[in-house]
Design a protein around this nucleic acid. Structure first.
Length: 197
DNA sequence: ACCCAGGGTCATA
DNA sequence: TATGACCATGGG
């Protein structure tokens, strides 16, 4: 498992918060602004005012809420006994619980940080995942986050690298499932999922 | 001029 | 437990 440098860790973690209910595309400009100002680090984000931060991340929408969420995350990091490079030594279950205790970090954001920033082998469930798995008949009704995650993790025995790749595939093809009739994205995922699920 | 995008929190019943 | 209101900009 590969610990990342602090710069990468914060870019991924802050990006995970900024992308909540928003396409990645909209996040890049905000992350670039933070980087070009040299404030994508825990000290700068601790010192900047919430309103200043909100103005910078404006293009991502929900900017007032997200500014608070980012500062809540930074405050947690300040309280945490581990530095970013050592977080991977924490028990992943305990770390997940700690992330979830931060106001503004829910299951998907916590799991995104674990998988993408810390290479913890945990599957990130998003709206697309739920829609696709339900549409494919793998799940029925209105499954909860944990059920969907368990379904994938029970059947897919792959590396964290592959967890990462599969979630990316779902995001890429997920929009095809907005339409009623099967499209190429569905065919792709049928063969994809059929191999493992 | 709509419609939606890789969520999460809070209030209410 | 579960359902709904709310947050808000940018691209199609």
């Amino acid at each position: 498992m590969a610990p990342r440098n602090e710069s990468d860790f914060f870019e991924i973690a802050v990006g995970a918060i900024l992308t909540q209910n928003i396409a990645w595309k909209n996040v890049n400009t905000a992350l670039s602004s933070l980087k070009s100002r040299g404030i994508l680090d825990p000290v700068s984000l601790k010192n900047i005012s919430t309103s200043k931060l909100a103005a910078i991340i404006r293009p991502t929408g929900y900017y007032n809420q997200k500014a608070k969420k980012i500062r809540n995350f930074i405050a947690w990091y300040g309280r945490c006994n581990y530095r970013s490079r050592d977080l991977c030594r924490m028990d992943p279950v305990e770390l997940r619980e700690e992330l979830l205790s931060v106001n503004g970090i829910g299951p998907e954001t916590a799991d995104s940080i674990l998988l993408y920033a810390l290479n913890v082998k945990i599957f990130v469930v998003d709206a697309y995942t739920k829609r696709i798995f339900t549409r494919l008949g793998l799940l029925t009704g209105d499954p909860r986050y944990q059920e969907i995650q368990r379904l994938f993790q029970r059947h897919f025995k792959g590396s964290a690298r592959e967890y990462n790749e599969y979630h990316a595939l779902i995001v890429v093809h997920g929009k095809d499932f907005c339409r009623k009739k099967p499209l190429c994205g569905e065919c792709c995922l049928r063969s994809l999922c059929g191999k493992y699920i």
